[in-house]
Simulated scan of single mutants.
Amino acid sequence: MGTKTTGDRPLYTLTGHSLTGDRRTTPIRGDLADISLAGKLFAPHYAVPMLRTGLAPVTEIHAEPHATAMPVSALMHGEEFAVLDVAGEWAWGYCLHDNYLGYLRFAELGDDFDATHIVSASATLLVASPSAKAPVVARYPMGAQLACGLPSECGAFLACEGGYVPKTHVSELGHVAASPTDLAERLIGTPYSWGGRSGDAIDCSGLVQLVFGLKGVLASRDTDMQQAEFGDDLPEGAPLIRGDLVFFPGHVGIMVDAAHIIHANGTAMAVNVEPLSHATARFATHEQAIIARKRISL
């Protein structure tokens, strides 16, 4: 901060860095910034993030601190969130897996735990005893991380957080066998929802982030970020194969084969598979319908 005077009246001017970077992932707002930005960007106050973990099966993250605000992402059970401010029932901060900022209900966060498994089916049910006839305690969608113990006596269930889950619905963290496209196909019919990124509700970039994330390949949250940062551009004329990404203006999907794409879209209001030519036709009013094609190394 610098100071100058006009007559007897001091005038103050701020000097130093101004905000650069993406507002979706740069942890600063008008009154507060992450302590990591001290000396880089000016803010009236800096906060040391308080690390908390998602306890609800899925917690919506909003653009503003109220329930009717637009959802921008979601925090899964077991994922970490860096809290920078709490006001009333709302916390402001960012997801550790992608640095995406937003507001969520503080009550849906809790202490960290050592997750061992991740839901790799479209969803699983936590039941009260290791039996197909047991009452349901909770439902966890694909992407939720769980702390599980040894298999139960019958071998078909794992003991997990006050109940049991079927072994076939979960995978050990870091050991998901299915490919990203296989995982996406398990989500066919999942409702489309802006900001969704789970087996309960999902958007186009959320689908990409979820299924590649289960394989340990981290993608950014939004389509434009993924286009800029994720994967390698395919040469002009190179044939598409299963698992390639195709980017449209504001949209992305995953190739099932050379001619079909799986994507979460507002036309079907769900995850579906359709010919790539049909999806491309819906962007015919744009100067360029397909703006990028990328391949991800696993």
Rank of each mutant, 00 (worst) to 15 (best):
G213T: 03
S198M: 09
A115Y: 08
L96P: 00
A128T: 09
A177K: 09
G213A: 10
A87L: 13
A87S: 14
N99C: 09
F157S: 02
V136G: 03
I118K: 03
W194V: 08
L187W: 02
S205D: 03
A128E: 14
F212L: 01
P180C: 01
A82N: 08
F157R: 02
Y103E: 06
G195D: 11
A219Q: 11
L96F: 05
T124C: 15
A123F: 10
D98G: 04
I118N: 03
P191S: 07
P130N: 04
S152D: 14
F113H: 07
A128C: 05
V119H: 04
C148S: 11
V170S: 06
L126H: 02
A128P: 04
D98P: 01
T181K: 01
A128V: 04
G195W: 04
A177P: 00
L210V: 04
G174T: 11
A121P: 08
M142L: 11
K133N: 12
P180H: 04
E185G: 01
V136Y: 05
P180T: 01
F106S: 13
L96I: 12
C204V: 07
L146I: 08
L218C: 13
P130E: 05
G143F: 08
L146D: 03
A178S: 13
V83K: 12
Y192W: 15
T223I: 13
L125C: 04
D114A: 14
